[in-house]
Design a protein around this nucleic acid. Structure first.
Lengths: 140, 140
DNA sequence: GTCGTTGCAAACGATTTGCAAAGCA
DNA sequence: TGCTTTGCAAATCGTTTGCAACGAC
């Protein structure tokens, strides 16, 4: 329950924070930019400012409720943190994002970090390519 | 020889382009932001503007002579493209960057892309952590 | 001489911040 | 009530672009 997590992080329960969380958990897709979220919340009639969306996303990330990704390009994308870690596959043509988890890669990463004397904090792994979705090829 | 590569890419041999290439190949480190390069070239007395550094970096990247990375944070880092592909380990405390290559991880990535029907273009893999360099711990 | 390249300053997109008003606990 | 949060607009950061002068070939 997200209310508990907000409280634990010392954040008050506000309409704006709940709107962002609801939006992220109800949507079909899982990955959104701040712009996506702001635009869609406004379209849905939510009373929220752009700066607030940015502030809330930062707070929720610090609270461990969201993950921030950069993929390709200059803007950040957010997703609700899930129980299990995963990495991403991104289609460069249609933008589709697929999540995957590979125990072998995870294991090798740990070994490599150890080998270089580095205490691993986290990692970013993102595979870029062109997907075989029939809709994709229509998008140029 | 970089002059040949520049010509092949249809780029003229200018002092500014050569300064950037020389800087990148002579330095001890291998990874620099545009800001790093601009600042250091100016300190070394090179006659180059900031916009030119950004333009040259883009051109050299398109020409396949550089690689651009994003790591953590908002600015891009560049390195001279090396013969063999490699991934990165970044220390979150002192900023040290280590390059590594792991055939097993590379292989698994190919398999995963195939499994999801994605024609792989490239990937970003970066491990973040805290290194065991004695100098590192002094830096806070 | 021609066309690519440069420096400067202004523009840009994404994100952050100052501040006074409004809201939660 | 007291301290957090908000919206707005202005500011900031990294990067790109328009334009007139300059430079390579």
């Amino acid at each position: 329950m997200s209310i508990k997590k907000l409280k634990k992080a010392g954040l008050k329960i506000t309409n704006q924070r709940m709107s962002v969380l609801d939006y992220l958990s109800d949507a079909d897709e899982r990955h959104f930019s701040a712009e996506d979220i702001f635009r869609d919340l406004r379209l849905n009639g939510a009373d929220v400012g752009q700066a607030t969306v940015y502030r809330v996303l930062n707070q929720l990330e610090k609270a461990g409720m969201l993950e921030r990704h950069h993929f390709e390009g200059s803007k950040a994308y957010y997703e609700l943190k899930s129980k299990e870690h995963h990495d991403h596959l991104v289609c460069l043509r249609c933008g589709k994002i697929v999540e995957f988890f590979d125990p072998l890669i995870e294991q090798r990463q740990k070994e490599i970090a150890e080998q270089y004397g580095i205490q691993l904090s986290h990692h970013h792994l993102c595979l870029f390519g062109y997907c075989s979705d029939p809709d994709c090829k229509l998008k140029n």
